[in-house]
Design a protein around this nucleic acid. Sequence first.
DNA 1: ACAAGGGTTGTGAACGTGTGCATTTTGTAC
DNA 2: GTACAAAATGCACACGTTCACAACCCTTGT
Lengths: 335, 335
Amino acid sequence: MSVTIKDVAKILHVSHTTVSRALNDSPLINPETKKRILETAKQLNYVPNYSARSLVRNRSYNIGLFFSTMSQVTSPGFFYETVRGVNSVITESYNLVVNGIDRYADVRTLDKRRFDGIILMSQSEKDDALVSHAVEKQIPLVVLNRKVADTSIVNVLSADRQGAYNAVVHLIEHGHTHIAIIEGEKGFQATIERKEGFLTALRDNHIEIPDEYIAEGHYTMESGYTAMKQLLRAAHPPTAVFALNDEMAVGAMKALYEAGLRIPEDLSVIGFDDSQFSSFITPSLSTVRRAIAEVGSTGAKKLMSIINNGDSTGEKIYIDTELIQRDSVGPAPKR
Amino acid sequence: MSVTIKDVAKILHVSHTTVSRALNDSPLINPETKKRILETAKQLNYVPNYSARSLVRNRSYNIGLFFSTMSQVTSPGFFYETVRGVNSVITESYNLVVNGIDRYADVRTLDKRRFDGIILMSQSEKDDALVSHAVEKQIPLVVLNRKVADTSIVNVLSADRQGAYNAVVHLIEHGHTHIAIIEGEKGFQATIERKEGFLTALRDNHIEIPDEYIAEGHYTMESGYTAMKQLLRAAHPPTAVFALNDEMAVGAMKALYEAGLRIPEDLSVIGFDDSQFSSFITPSLSTVRRAIAEVGSTGAKKLMSIINNGDSTGEKIYIDTELIQRDSVGPAPKR
DNA sequence: ACAAGGGTTGTGAACGTGTGCATTTTGTAC
DNA sequence: GTACAAAATGCACACGTTCACAACCCTTGT
């Protein structure tokens, strides 16, 4: 059926061992015979049988990229960037297997022999079952996006706190001193980090934040809309709003639009995430871009080094964010 | 190291063959011993070695999902929906391997033993190299999104023509008779299909279309913007515009906004694709949603049936689109 | 008691590749 | 030419599983 190393061997009157050595450029082979072998292998269109190779080498050549769930990922852009980042560093001899971990009935069937290593884009604490399983079974693992307690594993995270800090400084540099925040879902790591950055930036610049400048949100457009309405009812309405993600920023903009306020002349808005739509809305939305693809690629690089070199010192790596300046932020209006 | 069927066999004083039979629920086994074996297998946390199984069964248990390229996919939403759709029908025993075919130096290294079947989300004619290779090597193949000449292979396509037809009928039902089109990149299959639907709808309703209602576009926001400006300079400007994708629709809306025209009071706009941002802009954009996830899932089902049942009659399957009604379409203004 | 036959289990080879060790060939120095 | 080392090659087994075939046990009918 398909051509094997034995077929190549037979043609050249050598043993299959020699052919094997030629294909793996072993030092134990005459360069000339090696050349001959490689030539006829190519000519015969030889392709190694990965199953056989995997069996004897005890390597699957599969890298698992798992999301908490496949049916409700954070956002399409988030998903795409992650896959793209990881994919860019995985070499041709490896297969990148993408799945949601909720698709596996039992994480314990995830075997070292089925995956040489696992990259987990974690969005929920439920993933900890997989994490501890991998640790126990000594499957090389890198966790992206969500900080995990175990210090022995590699964690790649977006520096959301610093990004939020920069966003708020950006507002301050435009003269704003009345800056409100629309928070995200309570308890989420992202919410905590981003709010922390917000508060620190204000503190560093000696700006106080009254309670009425803090509005609740749930990362949805609707919640941003109602939050903004609430903020506008404040005794001294803010001149700038920092929404913890872009969806809420859009909701806030809708509320401002309805209230007859202009952006950014009357009020500046800045979001977080740089969602795809941010550049399409009017005015285009200033925001903070998380380098998701870079999170994926550095995670993948780390994983490959763990697999190949066996270095498994856990660490936490932070990937810088980028401030995206568009049209929704302007100078603070005179009072 | 890890537990094999021989380990299980040794404990129960049976042969490894018996264990194998138990695990594959073969009829050639006593239900009672089978039960005993399954129990201890579970207890030992036995996981089958896929490499070994693959080797002897000549099956990789890998399904390849290939995009033309990974670095510049049509849109994040498109990518995500595709993967999600395919993933939803792939069972746990299979690995879904995602990649761009440009990552493979030579498509001929794509082997039947490495992939039991391939799903190709095709966006370019360059993919034909892979198609013909798969046909030649008899690798089960399903091509999504792009019509391919070879009638022997399964093709799953979005019914763009019918979707465009419905969109235009939707405008006509709102009383519009002066309807313009912003075209997409010349030569693209999608452009041809959508324009065809547009023209047929007008013809069926005895509406003429003057040349000045046909504007060129390139699927970008900028091109939609300039196209709209051109359309507004017409002797009798249209009351409705059909943009062949959402990006161009947004560009058109920006041009209308600058011209002081209201949407949909003065002019209605409808797009195509239901991009993520369509619901976030103001006014929210009416559009046509392609059921990408369904394209993926039906393609995957077809592939699995080819793999398992060997039925390989080529066919072209069209997946219906869905008209998404939002706020950018209203009744035609009185003249 | 014995043959027939169904049900259940075991034996041994095979899948394609890599590797430790033995063997042969080549090269070098005397 | 011989001795020895180094280089190159071959042999045989291993990896974990499946499968064809043989072997065994037990029931049933004569």
